[in-house]
Simulated scan of single mutants.
Amino acid sequence: MNKRIGVIGAGVMGKGVAQRFAKYGYSVMLLDNDPEALKNATGEIFRDLKMKSMFDKSLKVQEVMENISIIRKYEELQDADFIIENVYEKEEVKKEVYEQLKDIKKTDCIYLANTSCIPITRIGAYTGTPERVIGVHFMNPVPIKNFAEVILGKKTSQNTIDKVGELLHSVEISFETVNDSAGFVSNRLSHLFMNEAAFLVYEGVADAKQIDNIFKKAFGHKMGPLETSDLIGIDTVVDSLEVLYKEYEDPKFRVCPLLRRMVEMGETGRKGKKGFYQY
């Protein structure tokens, strides 16, 4: 397989995306402006693969790791066939990333914006080639979740849609394709659940474990909304809610004060070793 995948952002989602595509034989270039994040990402990918290989003897850990190269300059992405962006859910950060890519990508390179809430049409406008920009909201954790939400920008071309569909099928990810809207479908729903669950803790109605248990046992979900918040990252949840609140000016997206307080204290969930639960 000769397709080259550039992955920008080595956080929770970025490292998962890199691992997924490397497992299926793609040559993955992982970029982050934080050397520590890159070091942590490769270490965590290796440990996760080693753990999985104990149960799946067909998994070749070293081969997967060799498919991932660490890069530190945007210029090294010039031969990428696809670039998957996974940086912070802050529009000014994403804008800066896409503007840096304008002059170095291949003329037929396709952007996959792995954003939680920011409209894809707006992201496309930053690139100068909006027809080659599409939203792909991978589900966390990416290495084991076989589904994604694909979002069409107003100018996304049919060629882009077709090629991204082929790409996702090649790594055994099924998807639903929806039209552009801040938060799309999954996050307009999920963030309401997470925010309201945080309000229930904040108001003293129930503790996190009780809320998650009710959610799982009553609705049959594998994870409760507060467990999900910890997995995603409390800071990411707050950033996404702020985008939704700004876009819709609807008070239902007002961030729970408890979530803000947790971020201020560094209680960002699993990545911070503490959130609604201790890790």
Rank of each mutant, 00 (worst) to 15 (best):
L168G: 01
D180A: 02
V201S: 09
F184D: 00
I173L: 11
T177G: 09
I214K: 07
A208L: 07
I214W: 08
H191E: 12
E166T: 07
V205P: 07
R188A: 06
G165Q: 08
A197D: 03
H169P: 05
F215I: 11
M194D: 00
E203Y: 09
H191D: 11
S181E: 08
L192T: 08
S181C: 10
V171H: 10
A182P: 09
G204K: 04
V171T: 02
G165R: 05
S186N: 09
G183H: 11
S190P: 06
F175W: 11
E176W: 13
K209A: 15
Y202H: 13
F184A: 06
V205Y: 15
L167S: 04
N179G: 07
Q210C: 11
S181H: 07
I214L: 15
S170N: 05
A208N: 02
E203G: 00
D207A: 03
T177L: 11
A206F: 11
N213S: 15
L168Y: 06
F199A: 00
V171D: 04
G165F: 05
V201G: 04
S190T: 11
K216V: 06
L200C: 15
L168S: 02
F184V: 01
R188H: 10
F175S: 10
I211T: 08
N187I: 02
I173P: 00
G183M: 12
N213E: 15
E172R: 06
Y202C: 09
V171W: 07
S190N: 14
A206T: 06
D180E: 02
E196C: 01
L167C: 02
V178A: 04
A206K: 13
S174L: 13
I211N: 03
G183S: 11
S174V: 10
T177P: 05
V171F: 06
H191V: 09
L200N: 13
A208Q: 03
L192G: 07
M194G: 00
S174N: 15
V171E: 08
I173C: 02
I211C: 05
L189H: 10
E166G: 00
N179W: 04
L168W: 07
L189K: 04
G204R: 09
S181M: 07
N179V: 05
L168D: 01
L168I: 04
K216F: 08
A182E: 01
A206W: 14
S170F: 01
A198D: 10
E196A: 05
L189I: 13
L189R: 06
L189D: 12
I211P: 01
E166Y: 07
V201T: 01
